[in-house]
């Protein structure tokens, strides 16, 4: 099973491995969501949705459905 951003625990830091470019909003990619960049999970709202993340220095909130599309490695 591949590890996705949604599988991380609060406080974890990982590296973005890959994603299907069509399934992510352009805005997220422009905010630094690119393969090789680091991503940390800072906080989650109830039901782990949305997620509060730090992608290579950008602090963002994204929904779980989007996080499930981003494959990461620890």
């Amino acid at each position: 099973m591949e590890l996705t951003l949604a599988d991380l625990e609060i406080g974890d830091v990982a590296v973005i491995d890959s994603f299907d470019v069509e399934k992510l909003p352009m805005k997220l990619i422009e905010m630094g969501c690119l393969p090789g960049n680091s991503v940390g999970l800072l906080q989650v709202a109830p039901s782990k949705d949305p997620l509060y993340i730090n992608i290579s220095g950008s602090f963002l909130a994204i929904r779980r459905e989007t996080a499930l599309e981003i494959i990461v490695r620890k």
Partner: peptide
């Protein structure tokens, strides 16, 4: 499909 990307400012 709905996209949701919100910056959390300082």
């Amino acid at each position: 499909t709905s996209y949701f990307v919100v910056e959390m400012p300082n």
